Amino acid sequence: MEVSSMTQPTPLRPAGPDRRPRVLDLYCHRGGMAMGFHQAGFDVVGVDQDSTCAEEYPFTFVHGDAIDYLRAHGHDYDLIHASPPCQADSPLNAYNKKTYPRLIGPTRIALLEVGKPYVMENVPAAGWQMRAPITLCGPMFGLPLYRHRLFETSFPLTAPAHPAHVARCTRNGYLPTSERPFMTITGGRHSKAWQRAAAQAMGTPWITTIRGVCEAIPPAYAHWIATQFLAVQGRTAA
């Protein structure tokens, strides 16, 4: 991992027909989506205002404002991914009653200004702000968790078949069992054993904090998206 300021980091490969595609990972957290893009053959640079994300982000990390960096450097990338914070639309906020910024609209405006292909992710409750999103969920990729996330894209994107939610789930920080093999991954005062099990179920074993794993997106989602993007571009995944 390399940490950079708001200037363009250096690890991007020079332009050329054989270089790996480049993805800019905005609001990158600890790199769930980033890992999926990497596994599909992308060079990845992540941007987040939370400097602690650099502790575990697996690739080049830029500490700074996502929209400012997008406007300054987005044209240097082949694809842009953005996961604006979702707290304002989280069901938990019905209890917290805090005020959070809504960044989906401002992020889309900046994405359209830059004009590069993009994918934007958020929680189902934010669907009213998104344009024709598709839904991805854990069982689509053989993951033992139900985790719906919406994805708006500027290129054609389809979802795999969505298996019925028939497996029973553990809740409230309990570990999975043979009777309840799936996990519900939400924040709380969970044990370290729960955190490790959740990270394993998500496919993010490098993430070691409860908040980090609860905010992560399974890399399998990004790999699916990246593969379809490369097909549209006439390229194949690594």
Rank of each mutant, 00 (worst) to 15 (best):
M6S: 14
V166Q: 13
D25Q: 02
P85Y: 05
T60F: 01
N96F: 11
R19Y: 03
G115Q: 04
G64L: 11
S178M: 09
A15Y: 08
L92H: 09
A94D: 13
V44E: 01
T208W: 09
A201T: 06
Q228M: 12
G115D: 05
V44R: 01
P17C: 05
H162S: 13
A201D: 09
R102F: 08
P11N: 12
S90C: 12
H223A: 14
P205V: 04
L24E: 01
T186A: 14
P218I: 02
G31L: 03
S83T: 08
A167C: 14
G31W: 06
Q233G: 00
P9Y: 09
M183L: 14
A216V: 03
R147Q: 10
E2P: 08
T7V: 10
E152I: 00
V119R: 00
S90Q: 08
A220W: 00
G36E: 06
T204H: 02
I185T: 03
I185M: 10
M33P: 02
Y118W: 12
R30Y: 11
D68W: 09
A94Y: 12
S83C: 11
P124Y: 07
T7M: 12
A220S: 13
H63V: 07
L157C: 04
A40G: 11
F61C: 07
G138C: 07
Y27N: 05
M183W: 08
I185H: 04
Q8P: 02
L111M: 11
R211P: 08
H162L: 13
G64C: 09
E2W: 11
V44W: 02
F61N: 03
Y69F: 15
G173V: 06
S83N: 05
G105E: 14
W206S: 09
F229I: 00
H63L: 10
A110E: 08
G32R: 00
G74T: 02
Y146F: 10
T158S: 15
Q195G: 06
A193Y: 06
P144D: 13
I207Y: 04
P101Q: 07
P124Q: 08
C86Q: 05
A238V: 09
P117N: 01
D76E: 15
T135E: 15
A54H: 02
A199R: 01
Q8G: 06
I104Q: 14
R102C: 11
V114A: 03
H165W: 12
I207C: 11
R20S: 03
R71N: 15
P91G: 07
V44G: 00
Y146H: 14
G188S: 11
H148G: 07
Q87P: 00
A72C: 08
S5W: 07
W194C: 04
T158Q: 15
P11Q: 06
I210V: 12
T99F: 11
L150T: 02
H81W: 07
